[in-house]
């Protein structure tokens, strides 16, 4: 944007509104507060996924798997290893990030459709492992992690937890924004735009691709840990392959390669899917329709509507060119 003052004023307004929001929403009842907190937690996942897909050009159909790993990591660390929540949260981020790095290793050599298939396999495998590794995870009986406390204060209420989640969201946003402006961030986007050109400029494409996976997984792990200690129950049924699709829908509807877009998409789709949960199947029908409409009519996402005057399209071009899947 040429005019720097306007977006800054907008950002300040949004931030202020975010601080007041829980008190307004609380008047609508506990279901609305739950939806709000879920939106904040899912916004972290959307930013994580956008970092990977929108900014580094790698698709993941397995982010629900990372989210679930974060849930279990944090629940197990607090319940079985006696970690306090405040240590378990960063520890699960590191743990899930390390797993993300391992999953990202094959991704170094894959792109497009093949990467989608590989990550989808990962996403299907995680709930199965959690269900059947009963000695550690208690199978379908699940785990019951406690709400975090600090001093004598418990984050058991919706409003208190909102601020905790919001703080994490702000932190993740800040880290991502800083990262994207750094040398590493530029390298990620260069690899996205043209891998051969990036290689020719001396960028280690393989390292940056795996790094993007690791960071994205770590943030998804943070969201998982936050979710686990919010609902105080963790089971293999929490997230499925459908949720991986939902996260992808968030960033596509919101806007690929845009942090505000991730936020917008996360809030919109969380509300849509939660509101329609009472309507049974209509939740996924509505989510699917929104995805389809977005792809057909707003390929740049909702955020592109706000950016109409910009001449350049916001959809990362390289995903178009990499229609041939396969080798490097």
């Amino acid at each position: 944007m040429t005019n720097a003052a306007r977006p800054r004023a907008l950002a300040a307004t949004v931030a202020l509104a975010a601080l007041v929001l829980p008190w307004v929403v609380a008047r609508l009842g506990p279901a609305a507060s739950y939806m709000l907190n879920l939106s904040v937690i899912f916004a972290i996942v959307a930013i994580a996924l956008n970092l990977l897909t929108g900014f580094s050009g790698q698709i993941s159909l397995g982010h629900a798997g990372f989210l679930m790993l974060g849930e279990y990591a944090s629940a197990l660390l607090t319940l079985k290893a006696g970690f306090p929540f405040w240590a378990a949260l960063p520890a699960s981020a590191l743990l899930v990030g390390a797993i993300g790095f391992l999953v990202g290793l094959p991704a170094v050599r894959l792109s497009g459709n093949f990467l989608a298939v590989a990550t989808m396999g990962f996403g299907l495998a995680v709930p199965e492992v959690m269900l059947n590794w009963a000695g550690l995870t208690h199978g379908s009986a699940g785990l019951m992690p406690k709400s975090p406390t600090i001093g004598g204060f418990s984050f058991g209420s919706d409003v208190a937890y909102y601020y905790l989640a919001l703080f994490c969201l702000a932190l993740v946003w800040y880290i991502c924004a800083t990262l994207l402006r750094s040398r590493t961030g530029r390298a990620l986007q260069a690899v996205r735009d043209s891998e051969p050109a990036a290689l020719a400029s001396g960028i280690n494409a393989a390292y940056h691709k795996a790094l993007a996976f690791a960071i994205s997984a770590a943030f998804a792990g943070v969201a998982g840990a936050l979710y686990a200690h919010y609902v105080n129950f963790v089971s293999p049924n929490d997230f499925s392959i459908q949720d991986s699709f939902l996260f992808l829908a968030m960033i596509v509807v919101g806007g690929l390669g845009s942090l505000p877009g991730s936020l917008l998409g996360a809030v919109l789709l969380t509300v849509v899917s939660q509101l329609s949960t009472s309507l049974g199947q209509f939740s996924i029908i509505l989510t699917g329709s929104v995805m389809l409409l977005a792809v057909l009519f707003f390929p740049g996402g909702l955020i592109s509507l706000a950016r109409r005057r910009r001449p350049t399209p916001r959809v990362p071009a390289p995903l178009a060119q990499r229609s041939a899947a396969g080798g490097s």
Binding site: F245, L248, I284, T287, G288, S289, V295, P316
Partner: peptide, 27 residues
């Protein structure tokens, strides 16, 4: 309609169809 769209849009479209068919069958 998406034959010239980016690969990601095509993937998303089939994922959306996945959700639609599953939802409609369940309904």
């Amino acid at each position: 309609r998406l034959s010239r769209a980016p690969l990601l849009s095509q993937i998303i479209a089939t994922l959306a169809l996945f959700l639609l068919f599953r939802g409609v069958a369940g309904a």
